[in-house]
Write a protein that binds this DNA or RNA. Structure first.
Lengths: 254, 254
DNA sequence: ACCTGAACACCGTTCAAGT
DNA sequence: ACCTGAACACCGTTCAAGT
C-alpha cells in the first residue's frame, strides 16, 4: 500500500507553486507532520508531497534534513516561556524544568526526534543563556559548568529517557501487550528483586515499562528527582560559599 | 562512489554459506561494524554484504533491525562488570555509574545507537535487578521506583546527553571547526551570560560544545553530578528512615 | 530566484523458489 | 532448515534544465 499516494500537483516546469513555499511554511509543516503523525511519517519526500512540491524544492530552502530538524527544534523550544526573572534561583529552576517537561509532553514526537537528531543551532541558546545567568546570580562560580550540566541532565536527560519508546508503540498495541505479558511473566529466579517489587515498579520504573512515556508519565518520579538534584545543588553551593562565620575564606580561592 | 561494492560471494541457490551464519556471528559482526565504523556504516544490507550473504538471510535469524539492535545492546551491556555485592550502597552505585560510563566511552558508537533505537530485551534486566536489590537493601521502600529512576537518569541520562553529537563528526572535521567558529563569534548582546563565561563553558557545557563527547569527555562534570545526586538521595533516605530518636514513626507509614 | 524532472545510491522487509 | 534472487516500497540528496 503506497503511503505517499498524493503526487505533487501537476504543474509546468519552472512554474511557481500556487502558494509560494517559504521556509516558514516548510518548518511549520514539518513540525505539524512530526507532531501529529509521528517521526516515521516524516521524511524529506513526504514533506515535499504534503507541500505539493518536488523533493528538490525543499533543498533550495534548507541545506539538509539535520538543518531542517534544527529549525523544527527551534520552533518547538521557542514555545518555552521562562519564569519571572526575580524569582529566587531554586524556584526559577524548578519551574523551568517543569515547563520544559510539560512542553515535551505536549509534543512528544517532536521532542523525541529533535533532541537527538537535530543539528546544533545557535539561535536556541536563549534558554541556556538565561539559565546560566540564574546560576551565576545564585552564586555558582568555579563550578558553573558543572551546575549547568547538572540542570540540563536533570530536565532534558530525564525527559529523553522518559519519552524513549521501548517498545515502539508505532508497531501497534499488540507489541505493547506482548511487552507487558513478557514482563509480568518474569523469571523470579533470574530477577529476584524486580519480581519481588514488581507491582511498585510495573510501568513506572525506567526498565520495567511497556507503555510509552506519554501514556504512563513519570510525574512523581520527576518531582522526586528534582528534589534530589536541587537539594544536592544547594549543598554544593553552601560548600563553595563562605558562611558569615568563615568570612574571608573566599578570597583564597582565586 | 558505491560504498557496498563487495557483493555476496557467488553461490548456487540454496547452497550453504561456507562458514555457516549463526546468530552469534550476526550480532558479533553488527557490533564490530557499529563500533569501528559508526552507526551510519551499519545497515541490514551492509551487514549482509559483510557476512557474504543476501539481506534476506539475516531475516531468517532475527525478526528485524530493532530486534538485532536489542541483541547488540545485550552484548554490549553484558560487558559491564558489577562491583562487589558487600560494598555499601553508595560506593556500589558510584562504581556502577563509573563503570557504565567507562563502557559507553569504550564503545561510543554502539552506546549511542542502542540506548535509543533498540528493542526492549528482557535479558538486559540483570543490571536493573541488582541495582534495585541494592536500593532495597539501602532502605528505599515506598520511594524505590523514584530512587531507581534517579539512578538511571544520573548514569544513562548523563551519558546519552554527553555522547549526543551536535554537530555530527561524521560530516567531517570542517563541520566541527565551523561550529567552534560560530560559538566563538557569539553575539554578546543576545547571549550575555554565555559570552561572559565563555572560557569556562567552551566545549565543557552541554549546549556550548563543538567536539564530540568522546573527544571532550565531561569527566569532572560527571563526578560532580554524581556528588549532587547521591547527596540528594542520602537526604531522601534520611528523611524516610526513622532515626533512633524518633523510633516507631516508621510503623505509621503502612 | 525558484522550481521541475529525473537520476543516483542507497534503505528495510517480504516472498516464492531453490537445496 | 537455511539460503538465494528478485521484488516492493520507500529513503536523502544532487543536478541539469526549465521559467
Amino acid at each position: 500500500v503506497p503511503v505517499n499516494a498524493r503526487r505533487p500537483t501537476t504543474r509546468r516546469a519552472g512554474a511557481k507553486a500556487e502558494l509560494p513555499i517559504t521556509i516558514d511554511a516548510i518548518v511549520d509543516t514539518a513540525f505539524r507532520m512530526i507532531d501529529e503523525r509521528g517521526a516515521t511519517a516524516f521524511s524529506m519526500r513526504s514533506l515535499a508531497t504534503e507541500l505539493g512540491v518536488f523533493p528538490a524544492t525543499i533543498y533550495w530552502h534548507v541545506t539538509d534534513r539535520a538543518h531542517l530538524l534544527g529549525l523544527v527544534n527551534e520552533r518547538w523550544i521557542s514555545q518555552l516561556e521562562l519564569p519571572d526573572d526575580d524569582l529566587d534561583w531554586l524556584t526559577w529552576m524548578r519551574q523551568t524544568a517543569h515547563r520544559y517537561r510539560a512542553l515535551a509532553h505536549r509534543h512528544p514526537n517532536v521532542a523525541r526526534l529533535v533532541t537527538i537528531e537535530r543539528e546544533r543551532n545557535t539561535d536556541t541558546l536563549t534558554v541556556p543563556d538565561r539559565l546560566i545567568g540564574k546560576l551565576v546570580a545564585a552564586g555558582f562560580d568555579d563550578e558553573l559548568v558543572h551546575a549547568y550540566n547538572a540542570c540540563m541532565v536533570a530536565a532534558q536527560g530525564f525527559v529523553v529517557m522518559e519519552l524513549a519508546q521501548l517498545p515502539d508503540p508505532d508497531s501497534g498495541p499488540e507489541a505493547v501487550a506482548e511487552a507487558e505479558a513478557e514482563l509480568r511473566a518474569l523469571d523470579a529466579e533470574r530477577f529476584p528483586h524486580v519480581a519481588a517489587h514488581f507491582d511498585e515498579l510495573a510501568d513506572r520504573a525506567m526498565s520495567v515499562r511497556w507503555s510509552a512515556g506519554v501514556d504512563a508519565p513519570l510525574d512523581t518520579s520527576f518531582d522526586w528527582f528534582l528534589d534530589v538534584v536541587f537539594a544536592g545543588l544547594e549543598l554544593k553551593l553552601a560548600a563553595s560559599r563562605p558562611t558569615a562565620r568563615r568570612a574571608g575564606s573566599r578570597a583564597r580561592k582565586r
